[in-house]
């Protein structure tokens, strides 16, 4: 992909992250000055357990080209089990989306701890590149027209 094409489309990416791990992981990426693309908009929530599937749908409705959901690794949840509950829901929800033909390349889940600033920066870089390649999420935009 040439430089001009790359800049031609800049995806909108929404990241729902938990307050205690991934948000702090993103803070650490900043403290360590780890550069990553500026497309991502972080929405801070207390816990991945709080992240409801309706939030994911709403993000697409608002024109997101990609949604990221991230929180503490299993066993590390600040609230002991919010991420375990979340994981179950995502497992089911992904299957539903798949049946509906919603592109699972548009939704990414990750465990990123407060110590994983590097993982955060790399992850965001990688999925932003992917979102650029995928182009605008036309299918959902058409639904929302």
């Amino acid at each position: 992909m040439s430089e001009t094409e790359k800049t031609a489309f800049e995806p909108k990416i929404v990241a729902y992250v938990c307050n205690w791990c991934t948000y702090l992981g993103a803070d650490l990426a900043g403290t360590n000055r780890l550069e990553y693309p500026s497309n991502v908009r972080i929405v801070r929530l207390p816990c991945t357990g709080r992240i409801d599937f309706n939030l994911i749908i709403k993000a697409f409705e608002m024109g997101a080209d990609m949604v990221v959901v991230s929180g503490c690794h299993p066993g590390d949840c600040h609230y002991t089990a919010g991420n375990y509950h979340a994981r179950r829901r995502w497992t089911l929800f992904r299957d539903l989306l798949e049946t509906m033909g919603i592109d699972l390349n548009r939704i990414h889940f990750a465990w990123i701890s407060a110590a994983e600033g590097k993982k955060f920066a790399e992850f965001i870089t990688e999925i932003t590149d992917k979102a650029r390649q995928l182009g605008p999420y036309q299918a959902y935009r058409e639904i929302c027209e």
Binding site: P46, C47, G49, R50, L55, H78, Y79, G82, H85, A86
Partner: peptide, 26 residues
């Protein structure tokens, strides 16, 4: 402790959490 996991599992969203409420996030 304010994790909000109840909000996500409540089908009618009768559960909500101050500081990270449905209204605030939407």
């Amino acid at each position: 402790m304010g994790c909000g996991t109840c909000v996500a599992v409540c089908p009618s969203k009768s559960a909500d959490i101050d500081g990270f409420s449905e209204s605030q996030i939407y």
